[in-house]
């Protein structure tokens, strides 16, 4: 007991000394903060960020990275109260678009990033999309031994049960493609037509809530086919789980980097984002997580063996289409209300 308490006291003293030393620096040099707080979704994504972005950034600048969970509502609370816990954040891109519309984000300094190299639609004034994930068709290989659906129209006709996200976002797009709308003619969404399309499969569809759930029902064979994100089934498939997928007619979605409006360490946050968006960092990230780069300069740096798993590879990218985050920022509320009413 005594040993423990003396140990903890020593650690505490050491910590205090380091804290004083670090806190002393900015006062003298009028330079960088001692740490940068980044809000992320956690999990494997954060592990990849830590390896690819955090470590090099800290080495380069001497600034320590601390992470926090990226609860959407917290961004609004922080900006309203002008009391900042985060210096920057990783957010779902559609939410970033929404937040930008509500004036919750700082404009980015595009002088530090090569806007011309970004995939169309991924560079925005207040946020930059950081990776390309795909919402696509997947199936259980034990339940579906042959004739897996090649596109959403076939997915709609597939026998047995299918899984879709219990949210209008992405599900509406998929419903329209199933009804024959071309992937480049989705927006603005024909909401009525999407509901008519969804009506046809409502009874035979399991509407899931979370990405983890979509993977579980696929792997356990609770459904024959399901929409899911490639990051959810990539590892299980390699690990031998009875699940397969393809990128045909997939809907590309993304995360985004953004800075809360009025956050105090904007300069450092912007430097971090520029580093994370640089070609080598984007390439290194995509090697760990099967989400493709949005900076096209990163693609040539990626191992050709990894590329087929990435939604934004030269081979896969033409098969799908990017979700229009601006549409959802403008119409999300209204469509969500209609969707909730429809699904009840």
């Amino acid at each position: 007991m005594a040993k423990h308490s003396s140990l903890s006291r020593r650690t505490l003293l050491k910590g205090a000394a380091v804290g004083t030393a670090v806190a002393g620096f900015p006062a003298i040099l009028k330079a960088a903060p001692s740490q940068l707080v980044i809000a992320t979704g956690g999990g494997k994504l954060e592990e990849a960020y830590a390896k690819v972005h955090f470590a090099p950034y800290s080495t380069k600048t001497g600034i320590k990275i601390v992470t926090a969970p990226n609860t959407n509502a917290k961004l609004k609370a922080m900006v309203e109260a002008k009391n900042y816990e985060w210096d920057l954040c990783q957010l779902p891109a559609e939410f970033a678009a929404h937040a930008a519309k509500q004036g919750l984000l700082e404009p980015l300094d595009w002088g530090q990033m090569d806007r011309a190299k970004m995939l169309t639609g991924t560079a925005h004034e207040h946020f930059v999309m950081s990776d390309v994930a795909a919402y696509h068709i997947a199936w259980n290989t034990k339940n579906v031994k042959s004739g897996a659906p090649k596109d959403w129209a076939e997915f709609w006709k597939a026998s047995g049960r299918r899984g879709l996200w219990k949210r209008p976002f992405q599900t509406m797009e998929v419903a329209l493609m199933a009804d024959g709308v071309a992937k480049d003619k989705l927006y603005p969404l024909d909401v009525e037509r999407a509901f008519k399309s969804l009506d046809k499969i409502k009874a035979s569809t399991l509407f899931w809530n979370t990405g983890a759930q979509s993977a579980q029902i696929l792997i356990d064979g609770e459904v024959e086919v399901s929409a899911t994100w490639n990051g959810r089934v990539h590892d299980p498939k390699i690990g031998g789980a009875p699940v397969d997928y393809h990128f045909n007619q997939s809907l590309f979605v993304s995360d985004a980097w953004a800075i809360p409006k009025g956050a105090p360490n904007k300069k450092e946050a912007m430097e971090f984002i520029a580093l994370a968006m640089s070609a080598p960092n984007q390439a290194a990230f995509s090697t760990i997580i099967p989400y493709g780069p949005t900076n096209t300069a990163a693609m040539p740096l990626i191992d050709p063996k990894v590329a087929p798993a990435l939604p934004s590879s030269a081979e896969n990218y033409p098969k799908g289409t990017f979700l229009d985050v601006t549409y959802w920022a403008d119409n999300g509320d209204r469509v969500a209300e209609q969707f909730n009413k429809w699904i009840l």
Partner: peptide, 13 residues
Amino acid sequence: VLIEQQANQLLNW
């Protein structure tokens, strides 16, 4: 679920 959607997804406080 609806309250979370409004508060956290749609920022419709």
